Amino acid sequence: MSNYERDYRSPDPETLKKLADLYDVSTDFLVGREEKERPKSKLDQTGNEAIEQLKNEETLLFMKDDDIDEETAKLIKQALINGIKYVDAMKKKE
């Protein structure tokens, strides 16, 4: 480690992977690269928009302090998946 810190030696790829796992960081972080934010898919964007709309609904009883508990989040995710499957099936019938 001392040789790496003093730039006398660079770790090989396998050592980088082990260090990344040990410290729970990406290998990009270890080599000083900035992580780029990946563009979100249309599905991710739609899901996030739906969650934000639900947070803004004043009539929803499951909301507590502007946060959704883990169980409710799982149920919402499953409902969205079921809705997507339904829409896909309906489009195939057309």
Rank of each mutant, 00 (worst) to 15 (best):
M90D: 11
L60E: 06
G83E: 03
M1T: 06
A50Y: 10
T59L: 13
Y4P: 00
P39H: 07
G83F: 01
G83T: 08
T27I: 07
D44W: 05
K77Q: 06
R33M: 03
Q78G: 06
S10W: 01
I81K: 15
G83Y: 05
I84T: 07
V31R: 13
T46C: 11
Q53E: 10
A79F: 11
E58H: 14
G47P: 03
E37S: 14
A79M: 12
M63E: 04
P13R: 04
R33A: 02
Y86E: 13
E58F: 12
I51R: 13
E35A: 02
T46L: 12
N82V: 00
E5W: 03
T15I: 10
D69F: 03
M1A: 08
K77W: 04
L30A: 02
Y8G: 02
K91D: 11
L60N: 10
N3Q: 08
A73Q: 10
D66S: 15
G83M: 03
T59P: 02
K93A: 03
K36D: 09
I68H: 02
L22G: 05
D65E: 11
K91N: 09
G47E: 06
K85L: 13
E37G: 09
E52L: 08
K42Q: 09
K17H: 07
A73T: 07
V31S: 06
E5K: 05
